[in-house]
Design a protein around this nucleic acid. Structure first.
Length: 245
RNA sequence: AAACGACUCC
């Protein structure tokens, strides 16, 4: 079952969901019954393609077959709803997890947070962000990135920055991805001065800008028509051993 | 642990 499941998962990740479904039928014929992990992989496959109806069918089918969805199963389906902006379904599912007596984990919360931010429901997102600590789910780097990006995408760069500073002296400060998120957020909100400061700041902290950092800065400059500065950065990329892609 | 969340452009 394990080896078949690995196959199902790999096929799903390549978008070959119908092949994966075929493998599952084959498994059943052979008396090798798919388990929760197998079905979860298939659900994730459908979600990645935005086929939420099919994903839901598989989810329900699991139930009929007497399998109990795990928190990962819920997370996969939740992610599908969030990515496809079906926020009401996502919220329903989120509450269903709790009703079933399961414990949402940090990934559940992060996924839900991202969904709320994507539809512009910042207030609800921030409340959820507070609520997760109450339930002893400690936000990790990934959660923080989602929240900061969510704020930036909703024209709340200043709030994102003060939150970033509040989060202070932990691992976030040495996370280049967080800087990428903030720099991109600032420049998209036409606050290039802030972006420039963040860029300086990360260098001061001894962080190495990566290709994405530069891409974000360069497009920021271009957006404002500052082609000179954009070119300077391209040169800097070559010099610092990080050639443009 | 065989399954889930994160950064630019596309």
């Amino acid at each position: 079952v394990k080896i078949y499941t690995i196959l199902v998962d790999a096929l799903c990740k390549e978008g070959k969901v119908e092949d994966a479904d075929g493998v599952i039928h084959f498994m059943i014929q052979r008396g090798q019954h798919p388990n929760v992990v197998t079905y979860t992989s298939l659900i994730d496959g459908y979600c990645l393609r935005g086929e939420m109806r099919k994903a839901r069918e598989v989810f329900d089918l699991m139930g009929f077959r007497g399998l109990v969805p795990s928190v990962v199963t819920y997370n996969s389906l939740l992610n599908g709803y969030c990515k496809n902006l079906k926020i009401e379904e996502a919220l329903l599912l989120f509450h269903e997890i709790i009703k079933k007596g399961m414990k949402p984990n940090v990934i559940t919360y992060s996924t839900m947070l991202q969904g709320l931010f994507r539809v512009g429901r910042c207030k609800a997102a921030c409340e959820l962000f507070n609520e997760m600590r109450v339930h002893n789910q400690i936000p990790d780097k990934c959660t923080c990135r989602i929240v900061l990006e969510g704020l930036c995408n909703n024209n709340q760069v200043d709030e994102a920055l003060s939150l970033f500073h509040l989060m202070g002296d932990n691992k976030l400060n040495s996370d280049i991805v967080v800087y990428n998120v903030l720099i991109d957020g600032a420049s998209k909100n036409r606050k290039l001065d802030i972006a420039r400061n963040l860029f300086k700041d990360l260098v001061v902290k001894g962080l190495q800008p990566n290709v994405r950092t530069y891409n974000v800065m360069v497009s920021g400059f271009c957006r404002e028509g500052l082609m000179g500065e954009a070119k300077e950065l391209l040169v800097e990329m070559e010099e610092s051993g990080c050639p443009p892609d």
